[in-house]
């Protein structure tokens, strides 16, 4: 009898590591809450490719665009906690939106953060035909025709929305918000004239700025990022509160076994420290980051009050 019990114990002990080796044995889905061609989507495709090579199973990107990324994160929250559903998200659905609206998921209870993948600045771009060259000129324009302008965003709770609300605040007028589900769509709206301005990832606006259809007025990062070195920061121009970089992070469903997350993180850490991968990530306009799951969770906790005060300032808390 005793022997059997010992054997059973050994089997149970062996089950832990065995589980880790058992993952992944089939296709892993990486859910992205934004449309194909958006920067989270492109980053997710890059990471999925790397993970596939490291872990030997297909990693397929699944776009679930809408509601500022909430729809995608909701899909991760409601998935089986078996490590076969991962998500790439921005701060909006994870930190900002839970403070603003009723959601179908609770990030603290339903989501398990894994690691940050990269950060990128956001750039305020306006249609060149608007005839403004600086943020001050834009503010004057807004004041001359209060409520007469629209801005495009990638959805509620994103930096692309919050930064524009801060601009509106600085101008003392309102700018009408038109949400889209990916940066290419939002940029197309600004070029086509449906909206006149948008705060977007550099990748989405740089080629149009070079062509002269868009003008870049300000960036959200605390210091000028090399990719847009000639664009002043919002802080330099006197608009506080949006010194934030839009990070993209990998998350999974709460309750996913530690062994799976450990395997996943080990593969990611290796991937993100690979110089070739870092170069590719930079090519998308991101600064690569290295962060353990614990560090990432601490970062979320640290950012939460900061976003709360931004929302308060913009009058967006609990709409």
């Amino acid at each position: 009898m005793k022997k059997i019990a010992t054997l059973a114990c050994a089997a149970l002990l062996a089950a832990g590591p065995a589980l880790a080796q058992d993952w992944p044995t089939r296709t892993v889905t990486v859910v992205v809450g934004f449309g194909a061609g958006s920067t989270p989507d492109l980053l997710a495709r890059l990471i999925a490719d790397g993970l596939q090579e490291k872990l030997g199973q297909p990693f397929v990107v699944d776009n679930r665009p809408g509601a500022g990324g909430n729809i995608g994160l909701d899909a991760v929250a409601k998935a089986e906690p078996d490590g076969y559903t991962l998500g790439v998200t921005i701060p909006g659905p994870l930190i900002v939106n839970p403070m603003r609206m009723e959601l179908m998921y609770d990030p603290e209870e339903d989501i398990r953060p894994v690691t940050m993948l990269g950060t990128q600045p956001s750039v305020l771009a306006v249609n060149a035909e608007l005839g403004v060259d600086t943020l001050d000129e834009l503010l004057d324009l807004l004041r001359a025709d209060p409520g007469g302008y629209n801005y495009a965003s990638i959805g509620v709770g994103s930096i692309s929305q919050l930064a524009m609300e801060m601009v509106a605040l600085a101008s003392g007028t309102e700018i009408e918000h038109i949400p889209y589900t990916s940066s290419p769509e939002a940029v197309q709206a600004v070029i086509g004239g449906e909206a006149q301005m948008a705060t977007m990832p550099p990748l989405a606006v740089l080629s149009q700025a070079e062509e002269g259809t868009l003008k870049l007025l300000a960036q959200t990062s605390a210091e000028r990022m090399p990719i847009v070195a000639d664009v002043p920061t919002f802080a330099e121009l006197g608009i506080e509160g949006v010194q934030a970089e839009a990070w993209n992070a990998l998350v999974t469903t709460a309750g996913t076994p530690d062994a799976v997350v450990d395997t996943l993180y080990a593969a990611l850490a290796e991937l993100l420290s690979d110089p070739e991968m870092q170069e590719r990530i930079s090519g998308l306009g991101f600064a690569p980051v290295q962060m353990t799951p614990a560090e990432f969770e601490a970062r979320i906790a640290e950012e939460t009050p900061r976003w709360r005060s931004v929302l308060e300032a913009a009058g967006l808390l609990n709409e």
Binding site: L42, R45, V61
Partner: peptide, 22 residues
């Protein structure tokens, strides 16, 4: 425009980006 219409076209976009073509 970088706006793909379906999953296969999105893969195309991904393949471009992986190779550094925007």
């Amino acid at each position: 425009l970088g706006v793909p219409g379906d999953a296969v076209l999105a893969l195309m976009l991904g393949a471009l980006i992986i190779h550094g073509i925007i």
